[in-house]
Structure formats: C-alpha cells, structure tokens
Nucleic acid binder design. Structure first.
Ligand SMILES: Nc1ncnc2c1ncn2[C@@H]1O[C@H](COP(=O)(O)OP(=O)(O)OP(=O)(O)O)[C@@H](O)[C@H]1O
Ligand SMILES: Nc1ncnc2c1ncn2[C@@H]1O[C@H](COP(=O)(O)OP(=O)(O)OP(=O)(O)O)[C@@H](O)[C@H]1O
Lengths: 415, 415
DNA sequence: GTTAAC
DNA sequence: GTTAAC
DNA sequence: CTGCTT
DNA sequence: AAGCAG
C-alpha cells in the first residue's frame, strides 16, 4: 500500500473563478477539438438568439475577422453595465467572469430561452486568449477586455453610438483547442437554421479572414420550419409539398412540426428545444416518434390501405424517407448536461405525442392523396424490411451448417 | 417589441454555493429521473474506487438503509478534516460544499482516477435532504451533517475507532428526483462491474430496506475483466474460452482488453476509462473497433480463410456476436461532460489501435482453431448482411412499380 | 403514456 | 372514475 | 402500444 | 434481440 501520510488539506485544491473551465474544458464544452471550438460560437450566438426569442433583438451579425477572432453582434437589450449588487462589479464583468451568473433563472425578461445555466459567456471568455465585450446602451459604447477570463481593462466608455445591443469578439485559445480555425460551412448552416427557427430574425455571416476572397451571407425567412424542411430536401424528391405543418400552443408550451417524405430512404429529423439543436433528441423526439408511428398505423388500418391482419408498421418503417423539423418552446427546459444535447422534461413527451397524433391524424384524413403516398412508401419499407430479415435468417440457418464464403456469389437470394 | 426598461443589474442573478446544482441538476447529473438518482451513488462509489485504484482502499460497503438513505463506506485514506488553507473551513466541509474542490487536479496522490472535476461529492450533498459524512482517521470518528448542501453541524469528533476511511450516507431529495427508490439490480451490477475492474477490491452490497427480506452480496474477483466477459456471456454460448486477453502498459497508460464471441448476434462491448463506464464510448472504443476490424480482415485474407477478391468484412460484420470489455487507465482523462459518458483523449485512439491490432493478430496466429471459428462467424454475418441487402433492394425495385401490401405473404425471398 | 373496459 | 391492457 | 436500453 | 418505462 502506498504512502498516505501526505494526504491532507494541502492535497485538496479549490479551483477558483474560471480556472475549472480551463482545467476541465470537457465538462463545459464537451471537448477541445473542432466541435468544442465551435461551441464557443454557439454559446454566444445562442445568447443573441435568446434576445431575439424574447422579442428584443431582430438582427445578428457574425464576422470571422482577419486576425482569427470571431465577432457576434446583436441589437438586443445589451448586457447591463452598472454595478451588480452581489459581486460589486460591473454586471458585464460579472456575466463574463462568474459561473452561474445569468438572467435566465426566472427573472431577466426571458419567457423562453435556450440559455439556462448562466455559464456560456464565462466559458467562452475563459477559453479565449482575448475577449472584447462591447455594449451599446444609452448612446454610449461600453467596452471591457479580458484575457483567458481575466479582465485586462475596466468597463470603459469608448465612444458614442445610436445603436443598442451587444458585441462579443473572442480569440480562441490555441493552448486549449487542437484547432482554432472555424469552419465556414458549419457556421453558415447554424445561422441558416437559427434563422428558419426564429421568424423575422435576420442573421448575417461574413468571412473576412482572407481579404482576397471575402464571403458573406444573409438569412431572413418568414416561412419558418416549413422552409427548413424544403431546404433539407433540396437535393431530394419530396413525395408531397408543402409539408405537414402543425403548430400548437398548449399551456404556454409551443409545439411546431413540419414534415414530409422523400423518395430516398434515410431519415432526416432535426429537433430543437428553445432553438437549441438537441442532437441526441430527448422527450420531444420520443413523443413525436410515438405519435407518428401510431397515427400512421391507425390511419392505414382505418382507411383500409393496409389490411388488419397484416401486422403493424414499425417505427423504422414509418421513418424511412422522413424529413421533419420539430421545434418546441417551453418555459423551464431541462437539458442533459451543459452541452444541451438532449431534452429531459418528461412532461413534453406526452404533450407532443398528443399534439402530433391529433394533428397528423387530421392531416391524413383531410389529404387522402398525400396519405396514400405515405402509406405506400412505408408499406413498401415494411415489405422490404421483412424480406431482408427473411433473407438474413435463411443464410444464418443454412450457414450454420455449411462452410463459409464471403459475399460475391452468395447470390442465394438476389434474384 | 417587448419592454426593455427593466433589464438591468437586478435582472442578473449569481447563483452561489451549491444553488446551481439544485437549480440545474441536469447540468450536473444529466437528469432527475431514475438514472440521475443512481448517479448519486456512482459519484460517491467512484470516489471510493479511486482510493482503491490508488492503492489506499481494499474494501467498499454499500448499504441501502431502512430509512431510504444509502451509505457508502471505504477503508481509504479518509477525506482530510483539518482546516483548508483556501476556504478556512474544514477540508471535509470544503469537499462537500464547494464545487471544483478536489484532490485530483495533479496533487492528492491519485495517479489515475475516474474523478477529475471535484464536484461529485458536492453534487450529491446538494441534492440530498440530508447527508452524513464520517471520516475515520487517527483513531477518531469525525462527523459532519448537511441538509441540501448546507452544513447543519460543525465537523465534530463523535467517538473513537480503529478503522480508517470514509463513510457517506445520503438521503436523495424527493423535491429534485421523480423517484427516490434505488434499484437493487442496477447497483448490484455496478458493484460487480467495479469489482471485476479492480483486482483485489472487495465490494459488499447490502439491502436493509425491508427488514423481513434482507439481501446482501459480496464481490471479490482476482481474475479481472476476463471473468467479466464470462459473466456477460453467462446465458450465451461462447465460441471459445478463455477470451482473448490483452494487457499492455504504454507510456504509463494501461490498456486491457478481454473479448470472445458468442453464438448469438448482438454485440456486448463495455468500455471503461479509469473505471468509469463510458456509455457513449469515445476514443478508446473507436481505436478498438478500427484495430479489431482491420486485424480480422487482414488475418482472414492472409490465412486464406476468405478469398482476396471477396471484398472486406465490415465493422458490423466482425462485431456480430462479439463480447468485449475494454479498460484503459490513463493519467489525464478528458471526458465529455460532467456525466463522463464519453472519453475524449485523442491520443488514446491510436494507442489502443496499435496495441489491439498487434495483440489480436498475434492471438489469431497462435490460435488457429479459435481464429477459424471467428472467421466463420463473421463471414456468415457478412453473407447474411449481403443477402438481406439484396433482398431489400429487390423489393424496393419491384415495389416502386407495383402496388402495396404489407408483410404476410411477401414470401418473395424467404425460401 | 394512452386507451379500453369495468 | 378507476383500473387493466396495449 | 412505442420507444429506449443493455 | 428482449425487457422495462412512459
Ligand atoms: N447578447 C446578449 N444580450 C443581452 N443579454 C445577454 C447577452 N448575452 C448574455 N446576456 C445576459 O448574460 C447572462 C449570462 O449569459 P451566459 O451566456 O453566461 O449564460 P446563459 O445564456 O444564461 O446560460 P447558458 O450557460 O445555458 O448559455 C444571460 O442570462 C443574459 O441575461
Ligand atoms: N472516499 C474518499 N476517500 C478519500 N478522499 C476522498 C473520498 N471522497 C472524496 N475524496 C476527496 O475529495 C475530493 C473531491 O471529491 P469529489 O467527489 O467532489 O470530486 P472528484 O472525485 O475529485 O471529481 P468528480 O467530480 O469528477 O467525481 C476528491 O478529489 C478526493 O481528494
């Protein structure tokens, strides 16, 4: 057994301020690769989107600067700059240097917001060699700079402005990240997506990194997630258009769904909770799936398009070729982990299931042509799946006896 | 546009102490359902296991008490109780009430440890209506109690003892969790698993919740992950036994693998990093998979068991029926998120890939009988997969033209 | 979780 | 309205 | 009943 | 691929 005389108070370290973020970035942004790097933008962008969701911002500008930094500017309310009662420091500095400081714990004027932990801005600050925060408020430009989370200036007024809003410019720390080069297409996609999700929001993205080949893009959509579905299907053939569109407000929780089918076989479903892309799904996705599968099965049987005795379509069957975007807005989101990959609120499952079942059933009843196309598509998927399974089992049964060969001329079942 | 006059310093809240944990449990334990509940045990258990990994503890006792609480006792070094220089409070109180306080940031005598954030104990404390910490040190019993993360007593000496170690007893907060009833089998499984992973560690689990039907179990394994594989395969038929066993120390990183195949078709692979079950895998799993697929393909071709022109076995093919346990121990683990579901260290991927490729190739060369069984198994899987795909495509091609019916008599390809 | 039956 | 089944 | 988990 | 959970 090893020596234990040295285990004492001195062995225990208390990480202070933003130290834990730099020491354990994985806990805060998942990793230090290219995904973690882009998380920095998402954290700042999400704050601006939250302002837009709350009705305070209408425009967001993201700029890749020539010096490798990124700027995110919005015309929201601007982070307050006056002294904060708890920290006795500027509220701006508080938000950017103190973990769990935020306006999304009940007050702050955000009815629904993607942010909820109050750590995003601080995390970005901690992981940037330099960060410049500018707040445009009351005709003045308030500015503070930081380095690796530590203020290098006070909050100072550097000029006058007619604008209102916030701009964050940050330089990702190469000591932390394996790469510090942002990907244009990744960010472009995200901007497009956020623009689809928030009616009336303008997002402008500009790449100034190579002055000889500048690029920029502006997104503004009125049509919402139906247009998003159309964009996802851009290089595919849709079975019908416009997509099924369901939007409903239940107890202050807004549920929106747009879906259609394409002629191909892969599933493209994107789920959002308060505009956060929940890449691992969660209760909203589970609820949608249950309702979708059940509604199609019920309709298929009731309408006689498939026979009662034929067995049910599986979830996989009805999802083949499906394109869908689901966006829920709710007051108290619970996400799994700081990276918000999965929505946890258990009540959302049944809420969505109810809304989607009702809405989809109604759609199918009122659109017999589209319904027929859907049922044909998913019934074919079911037959294909059954045939594949049967073929597989034949081989397994036979092969268990005989010897082996690889594909090539295992033509047993091909024709 | 909504009113913005009220957005000011007062709108921003700074959560202090353990408030953020209670306000946003999802960020710290993933959720508040049954999984989140059990996370509490894992956090405390992992601390004891870390003591065992460091060679200071040999025995852990977990008890489900009649009053609904859980106790975890170990014979490790005991959390220090003297005043901590940074907080001016007892180190015990510091560890249990301050986030990011821990002995696993470089000092503390832990060479490898599953803990790394310094938040686990505090999180459990925050989410418990009551927590009792007892430290057995220098012949004395030191004790402190807390309620929802707030100390309700000082650290007091309550008696004498010959033992050394730590015991944490906690009462999960029904205000936080949707259920507060621990699952015997879930915890039993985890104890068994940890015992397999740590040679020479005894883990005792006891259920005193129903005095009329007490149950208890003691785990102690010398054989390690090979025995774990055998246990996973308990109700299955293994193609060969003992399993392939690889263990290697590369630059202070210990890589251990045990694997075999069963006659069934599902894959059972469990990966661990510093004894943490990485449920979403990560770089160790990725490295293993790459090496495994390549080693089997290379051997199959080189040995002539499958022909050169037959195409390659896919990863899915070679994983059908695979049972494996992978355990890596490394100095500076990076996990994705606080719940540690995925290992992030990029260097581990190639490290494992090299070790596994070499070890598995050697095994195959030295065990031609086992090798033959493996190749037969995976080649059959490949043929079955190809046949399934072919059958599926036949249906799709035909079905695109004809009408629809569901399974039932789509016997096209079954015989 | 929803729906059907008692 | 509550309980059992899907 | 459908989906998620091991 | 089977059992549990919502
Ligand atoms: N662009 C902005 N405009 C107005 N207020 C902002 C802006 N960015 C941040 N804030 C304020 O600062 C607070 C802290 O932001 P921060 O990014 O740290 O966390 P959050 O958005 O509350 O939560 P999360 O960590 O989940 O993203 C926010 O709650 C908001 O009140
Ligand atoms: N049973 C124990 N025996 C000895 N020391 C312990 C024990 N439990 C906790 N400690 C000490 O308290 C510190 C803090 O523990 P805590 O659970 O908060 O975090 P951690 O294990 O360091 O990291 P993580 O949050 O990733 O689990 C540990 O680093 C360790 O030094």
């Amino acid at each position: 057994m090893a020596d234990n005389t040295s285990y004492s108070a001195q062995s225990i370290t208390v990480l202070e301020g933003l130290e834990p973020v730099r020491k354990r970035p994985g806990m805060y942004i998942g990793g230090t690769g290219v995904d973690g790097l882009h998380h920095l933008i998402w954290e700042i962008l999400d704050n601006s989107v939250d302002e837009a969701l709350a009705g305070f911002a209408t425009r967001i500008d993201i700029t890749f600067n020539e010096d490798g930094s990124v700027s995110v500017l919005d015309d929201g309310r601007g982070i307050p700059v006056e002294v904060h009662p708890q920290t006795k420091k500027s509220t701006l500095e508080t938000v950017l240097t103190v973990l769990h400081a935020g306006g999304k714990f009940g007050d702050g004027g955000y009815k629904v917001s993607g942010g909820l932990h109050g750590v995003g801005s601080s995390v970005v600050n901690a992981l940037s060699t330099k960060l410049i925060a500018e707040v445009y408020l009351d005709g003045k430009v308030h500015r503070q700079e930081y380095s690796r989370g530590v203020p290098t200036t006070e909050v100072v007024v550097t000029g006058e402005t007619k604008a209102r809003g916030t701009q964050i410019t940050f330089y990702p720390d190469a000591e932390i990240f394996t790469t510090t080069e942002f990907n244009w297409n990744t960010v472009l996609d995200r901007c497009r997506q956020q623009s689809y999700l928030t009616r009336g929001l303008t997002i402008h993205l500009e790449d100034k990194r190579k002055p000889e080949t500048p690029q920029s893009y502006t997104f503004y959509f009125e049509s919402g997630i139906e247009a998003y579905v159309r964009h996802i299907d851009a290089n595919k053939t849709e079975l019908f258009s416009p997509p099924v569109s369901i939007e409903k407000d239940v107890d202050g929780c807004i549920i929106a769904l747009a879906m259609t089918y394409t002629t191909d076989f892969s599933e493209h479903v994107y789920t959002f909770a308060n505009n956060i892309l929940t890449i691992d799904g969660g209760t909203h996705l589970t609820g949608f799936r249950a309702a979708h599968t059940r509604a199609i099965n019920d309709y298929a049987k009731k309408s006689g398009l498939i026979r009662e005795g034929d067995g049910s379509l599986t979830g996989d069957d009805v999802r083949e070729g499906l394109t869908a975007v689901i966006s829920v807005k709710l007051g108290n989101p619970q996400f799994e982990g700081q990276t918000k990959g999965k929505l946890g609120n258990p009540e959302i499952r049944s809420l969505i299931e109810g809304v989607v079942y009702e809405g989809l059933t109604e759609y199918l009843n009122e659109h017999p042509n589209e319904a027929k196309k859907i049922i044909e598509k998913v019934a074919l998927a079911a037959r294909a799946r059954a045939a594949a399974r049967a073929a597989r089992e034949t081989i397994i049964r036979k092969g268990a006896l005989e010897g082996m060969t690889l594909p090539g001329k295992l033509a047993d079942c091909t024709e």
